[in-house]
Design a protein around this nucleic acid. Structure first.
Length: 267
DNA sequence: AACAATCGCAACCGCCAGCCC
DNA sequence: GGGGCTGGCGGTTGCGATTGT
């Protein structure tokens, strides 16, 4: 059984694309647009798998691609987005015009990982490595499975961790969920609510940034912003469930950040 | 100069979700 | 409802380029 192949492998080229193949693909897409990738190779006279054509176009031939080195600002932006989204390269790429998911993924693996390690941060969790080692030691014994689950939850919302790590230089405090709180969330819900929302940090700075934002329980000065909506990952017709999630604020993981515009720019 | 090791990136692979019939 | 098809995604691999010995 198994999957049917996406194309007839016996008659398809593999490996590096030639100039001629590139030209064929580009001219076809210019003439007909991005249509059905499966039928495109045949229509364009290419001995390539449709997937391969799509990848070549998206990652290399698209006219709006910005090629060349990443700027320091892009670096920091990627780090922050990765802190928020994890390895969701396509989502990260969606926030960086002219960059592809593949490019960002490669760049992350070859440059940024090392950069974070040099800063003493774990590239996956964005937490200080010493801190992680401490948690790892606590995980030994009977609590290991719970602690692992907590780490997993933390990974869905690690932005606060990166914010915390940067807080010394950025001047605002991250609001990392305490282990106890994370454990409670996990224990209560048994399932992860992946709706992300944003609220103001608990720092004094945030109070000055508060405008007409909804008051959040507990802090008295938190504005809750749905991350999906704020970043534009969901359009208005897709019915983000943020309002529902916010009505049940107990198990919603929030990303705390200042409200002012440009907050995602590199510090 | 020759070889080995490492790096960087393009491309591939397999899985998954959404759509359509 | 479910099965097949397709597009899209993230992880991994392959290989040329670069650097070190």
């Amino acid at each position: 059984m198994g999957r049917s192949p996406c194309c007839e492998k016996a008659h398809t080229n593999k490996g590096a694309w030639t100039k001629e193949e590139d030209e064929r693909l580009v001219s076809y897409i210019r003439a007909h647009g991005e249509g059905c990738w499966r039928s495109l190779p045949k229509a364009a006279g290419l001995l390539r798998c449709g997937k391969s054509c799509r990848l070549r176009w998206i990652n290399y031939l698209r006219p709006d691609l910005k090629r060349g080195n990443f700027t320091e600002q892009e670096d920091e932006f990627i780090i922050k987005l990765h802190g928020l989204l994890g390895n969701k390269w396509s989502l990260i790429a969606g926030r960086l015009p002219g960059r592809t998911d593949n490019e960002i993924k490669n760049y992350w693996n070859t440059h940024i990982k090392r950069k974070l390690l040099r800063r003493g941060l774990d590239p996956m969790t964005h937490r200080p490595i010493i801190d992680i080692a401490g948690i790892a030691s606590q995980q030994e014994g009977a609590a290991a499975s719970i602690a692992t689950a907590v780490q997993t939850i933390r990974y869905t919302k690690p932005a606060a961790a990166s914010e915390a790590a940067d807080s010394a230089e950025e001047g605002h405090s991250g609001s990392l969920l305490e282990d106890e709180e994370l454990g409670r969330c996990f224990d209560n819900s048994r399932e992860l609510n992946l709706d992300l929302s944003i609220s103001l940090p608990h720092s004094p700075m945030s109070a000055t940034a508060t405008t007409t934002a909804a008051e959040a329980p507990g802090s008295g000065s938190e504005a809750i912003i749905c991350l999906c909506c704020h970043l534009g990952f969901k359009n208005s017709t897709e019915g983000c469930s943020c309002s529902r999630a916010m009505a049940q604020t107990t198990n919603v993981f929030r990303y705390h950040r200042p409200v002012e515009e440009g907050g995602y720019n590199a510090a």
